[in-house]
């Protein structure tokens, strides 16, 4: 999830903050450097966690050996490529802030590599032996998680400094993505229920053994939507009143983070092998 947070930050940063909304400014604002630093830290945390779950991390360098057929190998390659690009972009933003805007193509490239990375990450789970994961819902969920984690965090960075338009855009994303996630949930559950026996069992496990987490996730989704809407209506064109955005933006991000963590927990709870093997 740290990788998705990182990719989401870069994608939203590239799409909304580096583009026309800031065209009038010459330099990259200082806080943007810290946005990149957070994205880089999240990516490094992701790399560290990836290493930690290996039984034999000493052989980690060998994981690039099967790019031909292994999605895991491809994921590791993408993670390294993305993190390296992000590190270069971050260093350039810190060392040459005045030239950073002219290097937007590098941020574009990093954002694209982030998009590719999220797809490859989701592809790891889309295997026939795990029927509950093997559907379009997996990449969809991964992309929505990346966008919402990135946009809700960047909304906090926009308080007091960001333009009215960018604040509005990020606030809309902060409540509309959880709304989409909430709308997809019953569709996904209905699909699980009718797909096959194993997927039905995965659904039964969620409803029988993880009901508390299921309702908690629903609750946090609803809270995130509420706080996002509150944030949207707290945005003022008068910059002196920007502080009104602080509380709902922080609360929205906290609710979104909690919802995504529980969502991932429930995702792994559906790890049931096909045919019971």
């Amino acid at each position: 999830m740290a990788m998705q947070l990182s990719a989401g930050i870069i994608l939203i940063y590239d799409l909304f903050l580096l583009s026309p909304l800031y065209r009038t400014r010459v330099d990259i604002p200082a806080r943007f450097q810290w946005i990149l630093m957070i994205a880089l830290t999240a990516a490094l945390v992701g790399v560290a966690f990836s290493l930690m779950h290996l039984g034999n991390p000493g052989n980690a360098t060998r994981t690039l050996a099967n790019l031909h057929s292994s999605w895991l190998s491809r994921e590791i390659f993408s993670v390294l490529a993305y993190t390296l690009l992000l590190a270069v972009v971050t260093i350039l933003h810190f060392t040459m802030p005045s030239a950073a805007r002219s290097l937007k193509w590098m941020v574009d490239f990093t954002a694209i590599s982030g998009i590719v990375l999220v797809f490859i990450m989701s592809r790891i789970y889309m295997i026939p032996t795990r029927p509950a994961w093997n559907s379009v819902f997996t990449p969809l969920g991964f992309y929505l998680a990346a966008i919402i984690l990135g946009s809700s965090l960047l909304l906090i960075f926009q308080i007091n400094h960001g333009s009215w338009a960018s604040q509005k855009l990020l606030a809309i994303l902060s409540f509309s993505i959880p709304l989409i996630q909430l709308a997809i949930l019953p569709v996904f559950m209905a699909w699980l229920g009718q797909k096959d026996l194993v997927s039905g069992n995965a659904l039964a496990i969620i409803l029988d053994n993880h009901m508390a987490a299921f309702y908690l996730r629903l609750g946090f989704f609803i809270l995130a939507i509420g706080f996002g809407i509150w944030a949207f209506f707290s945005i003022r064109s008068d910059t002196l009143r920007n502080h009104l955005l602080f509380t709902p933006a922080i609360l929205a991000w906290a609710a979104i983070l909690a919802a995504q963590i529980i969502d991932r927990y429930l995702f792994y709870a559906q790890n049931l092998p096909a045919e019971g093997f």
Partner: peptide, 17 residues
Amino acid sequence: PDKCVGCRYCEWACPYG
């Protein structure tokens, strides 16, 4: 055993466990 990294992805991929 000298190359295995213990990621357990083969365990997921094998339809026979």
